[in-house]
Simulated assay, not measured.
Amino acid sequence: MSATIVGAARKMEGHQAKEEKDAAEKKLLSAVRNYSIFLYVVFVFSTLALRVAAKAAPAAVASAQCFLAGGYGLTVTVASFAAATLLLQALLARVLRPSTSARLTPLAAWSLAAVTWCCITSIFHNCLTFGDENLGGYGEWAAAAGASVANLAMSARTVRRHLA
């Protein structure tokens, strides 16, 4: 009789552990899905917004381009790109944060880091060009390149820490 009770208790514990593992996996997949959607929306918005603005309000875009032709100012550029880099890296780290029972595979983690890096680099490029490849000074382009390299290094560090 007591063996039956012990066996039933073990089955129940195993069932609860499986349910907890399934819930952790669902939570991880949901976080990855939401982060991927966020990256996609930011990428599409930063890519298409200037093109739509140029068609919808060409006078306003021309005015903004004249204002930006002298360069944003290196301090503003560096601060903006640093803030964007830190924001996306914090979001990536939050998604990759190891759960007690669910983790991304190495391929999925590295892919997510690469997509993050591509997205932020695209945002830097779109912010500097504002629809015209000749805008932005050399300092701004150097800041964008430096921020992109820093973002790549931070993405790699985040993934390595996740996989450890």
Score class of each variant (00 low, 15 high):
163 L>W: 04
34 N>C: 02
23 A>G: 01
156 A>G: 01
95 V>S: 10
48 L>D: 08
80 S>K: 09
49 A>H: 05
29 L>W: 08
116 T>P: 05
126 N>R: 14
90 A>M: 08
43 F>E: 04
51 R>T: 09
147 A>E: 02
124 F>V: 04
6 V>G: 01
90 A>I: 05
57 A>C: 06
91 L>R: 14
6 V>E: 15
1 M>T: 09
83 A>I: 09
96 L>M: 11
127 C>S: 11
151 N>Q: 13
130 F>A: 14
162 H>G: 00
139 G>W: 11
126 N>D: 06
51 R>A: 08
83 A>L: 12
35 Y>N: 10
63 S>F: 10
46 S>D: 05
13 E>M: 14
97 R>E: 08
71 G>L: 05
139 G>I: 11
111 S>T: 12
157 R>F: 10
74 L>M: 07
10 R>P: 05
47 T>V: 12
132 D>H: 05
88 L>S: 08
53 A>G: 06
114 A>Q: 04
41 V>D: 12
81 F>V: 01
25 E>H: 08
129 T>M: 07
4 T>M: 02
22 D>W: 06
14 G>S: 04
73 G>W: 07
127 C>K: 09
137 G>M: 12
77 T>H: 00
139 G>P: 12
101 S>W: 11
98 P>A: 13
82 A>P: 01
140 E>Q: 04
156 A>C: 05
122 S>V: 00
52 V>Q: 04
146 G>F: 00
27 K>L: 13
67 F>D: 09
1 M>V: 07
57 A>L: 05
7 G>F: 09
42 V>A: 15
128 L>N: 13
91 L>D: 09
103 R>T: 06
73 G>Q: 07
78 V>H: 08
42 V>Q: 14
42 V>Y: 11
152 L>N: 02
28 L>A: 01
116 T>V: 09
109 A>C: 07
108 A>S: 08
79 A>W: 00
58 P>D: 09
89 Q>F: 03
38 F>A: 15
106 P>F: 04
123 I>A: 08
92 L>M: 03
164 A>Y: 08
154 M>E: 03
31 A>S: 15
22 D>R: 12
89 Q>P: 04
128 L>D: 05
65 Q>T: 03
33 R>P: 02
66 C>P: 02
141 W>V: 03
6 V>H: 10
31 A>G: 10
149 V>P: 09
163 L>P: 05
143 A>T: 02
42 V>R: 14
84 A>T: 03
119 C>F: 00
36 S>T: 15
53 A>S: 09
37 I>H: 10
100 T>Y: 02
159 V>D: 04
152 L>I: 06
82 A>E: 13
24 A>M: 03
113 A>K: 00
27 K>A: 15
35 Y>A: 10
51 R>L: 14
10 R>H: 14
139 G>Q: 13
94 R>L: 15
69 A>C: 03
79 A>E: 06
138 Y>N: 11
3 A>Y: 05
70 G>R: 10
32 V>G: 02
13 E>S: 13
128 L>W: 05
19 E>A: 04
44 V>W: 11
113 A>G: 07
7 G>E: 15
73 G>Y: 08
58 P>L: 07
24 A>N: 02
163 L>Y: 06
51 R>G: 12
106 P>R: 04
127 C>H: 10
115 V>T: 15
2 S>M: 09
26 K>Q: 13
